[in-house]
Design a protein around this nucleic acid. Structure first.
Length: 456
RNA sequence: GGCCAGGUGGCAGAGUGGUCAUGCAGCGGCCUGCAAAGCCGCGUACGCCGGUUCGAUUCCGACCUUGGCCUCCA
């Protein structure tokens, strides 16, 4: 089964063929670590985690890098405000990021390069750009000369003239062209900085991704991914500087962009202030429901976040986990779980996760009806590729029991059992009401009475 | 203003030139002491107007409308 992926560069879905099938390379623009990330920031990592899982099934060696940008003016501002070294800030939030991503069931990337560990490569790359006539030093800065790269604007479909005409920012006087962007900028003594041929300074925003990508994955990589809001100018600038620094070699063969997460109909973003932190959401809701919600829309479409959508995702998972609970005693075949062809086919079709989830629902029905080990394995196998259904069914349905006094629940259930045996249904129903008030739902079934935690 | 992506049933959300998405919610029934779960069934969905076609939600054009980018942003 071959994988087809939408390429922002060609604006069409193309059959994916890696440059070297023995080393498939993928880079995702990671966070700038100066505070906690919000759920919108997690959409790309979740989606491209699924892509990495899919690629690993097709190719023996996938190298997936997701960087940490740990040098940036926002970090500097936070460090100055708090009176600490930037490392204090970046260390804390890089770790929080790893934990948040793990909480969402995202497998760690193969590589997690840090910008500050690549200052040497950044300086070398800038020197190459200057030597090639693609960059120039001016007023203690180094700038990329957009005029030296005729293909600038290919990715975002912009032409330089329009950019100049529509420019909303004041143009720095030392720029040759208004669209030139900073590769290196000077640092004042109180700011972090590194020695360079242009004086003590620090890298501009875009260069670190180019340098880290080249350092770990090579001059040409297979897939470069990120949010659609990075398409311009970040990715456009990355293409320009990487291509020019590498003698015209193609930088990334596929460009993939996830759509924005919206909240109240607007893009969730720090500047608008309508953010929900992953850190907080993970405490409030079952993490897998958050992951399911992020996969319920196609990755290129906008996706609206809401409380109701979370509840809905929980209900869906409840249904699947109930099937698995009923089949808890059914032994699995030896070896790795099989991935159902229909789930895989959906993902191979430009990562159609909504279709894959529809297939999962069908598999759940089949497992419920047949009760067979094969059907159960198929459901779990499909879930695994999506990073779902990874919990024990009982643990899921009881929400980990963390907020429940299980002994008390069992005691009430025992009392109710006695009442029912005595056909004192009024008493039995009263106990059920009491349990409901505690947030416990019960089911009388062939195997006795079972309980679970009500949706939250 | 320029560039880009959308508008599908109560909500969410795939997809397709001519039977079916799927999920959640709702309604009716079966089952149950009653519930819950499960099972069976139900609701005449494709923004608007033209065009192409034997036939369009699906192709083409105009219009209305929502969102994203053009400044930091996943």
């Amino acid at each position: 089964m071959s994988i087809s992926l939408y390429n922002s560069l060609s604006r069409r879905i193309e059959p994916f063929t890696p440059l070297d099938p023995d080393r498939v390379t993928m880079y995702l623009c990671g966070p700038t670590v100066y505070n906690y990330v919000h759920i919108g920031n997690a959409r790309g990592p979740v989606v491209f985690d699924v892509l990495a899982r899919l690629l690993r099934r097709h190719y023996p060696n996938v190298v997936y890098a997701r960087n940490i940008t740990d040098v940036d003016d926002k970090i500097n501002t936070a460090a100055l405000e708090q009176g600490v070294e930037i490392g204090k800030i970046t260390g804390k939030f890089a770790q929080a990021y790893r934990e948040d991503m793990a909480g969402l069931g995202i497998a760690p990337p193969d590589l997690e390069p840090h910008a500050t560990a690549h200052i040497g490569q950044i300086i070398t790359m800038i020197e190459n750009l200057i030597a090639g006539g693609h960059a120039y030093a001016a007023a203690d800065h180094v700038l990329f000369d957009v005029g030296s790269y005729p293909d600038y604007g290919n990715l975002s479909g912009r032409d330089t003239e329009e950019l100049i005409a529509g420019s909303r920012v004041e143009v720095a006087p030392y720029k040759k062209n208004p669209t030139d962007f900073v590769l290196w900028k000077p640092s004042t003594p109180e700011l972090p900085g590194w020695a360079s041929p242009w004086g003590r300074g620090r890298p501009g925003w875009h260069i670190e991704c180019s340098a880290m990508s080249a350092a770990h994955l090579g001059d040409t990589i297979d897939i470069h991914a990120g949010g659609i809001d990075l398409l311009f100018p970040h990715h456009e600038n990355e293409i320009a500087q990487s291509t020019c620094a590498h003698g015209g070699k193609v930088f990334a063969r596929w460009w993939m962009h996830n759509g924005m997460l919206t909240f109240d109909g607007r893009k969730m973003s720090k500047s608008l202030g309508n953010v929900l932190l992953v850190h907080e959401l993970l405490k409030l809701h079952p993490p897998e429901a958050l992951r399911l919600l992020l996969l319920r829309g196609h990755y290129r479409q906008p996706l609206d976040w809401s409380e109701g959508a979370i509840t809905q995702a929980i209900s869906t998972l409840d249904g699947w986990y109930r099937v698995l609970r009923d089949l808890a005693e059914v032994a699995m075949p030896e070896g790795a779980l099989p991935v159902p062809a229909r789930v895989e086919a959906a993902l191979c079709d430009d990562l159609n996760t909504p279709q894959a989830l529809a297939e999962l629902s069908q598999l759940a029905d089949q497992a419920r009806h047949s009760g067979s080990a094969e059907a159960k394995a198929a459901l779990l196998g499909g879930g695994m590729l999506l990073g779902l259904l990874q919990q024990q069914p009982e643990a899921w349905l009881k929400r980990g029991e963390s907020s429940v006094d299980e002994a008390h629940v069992e005691d009430l259930l025992q009392q109710r059992r006695a009442a029912r045996a005595a056909r004192d249904f009024a008493r039995a129903d009263a106990i059920r009401v009491e349990l409901t008030a505690l947030g416990i739902a019960i089911e009388d079934g062939a195997q006795g009475t079972r309980w679970s935690v009500l949706k939250q």
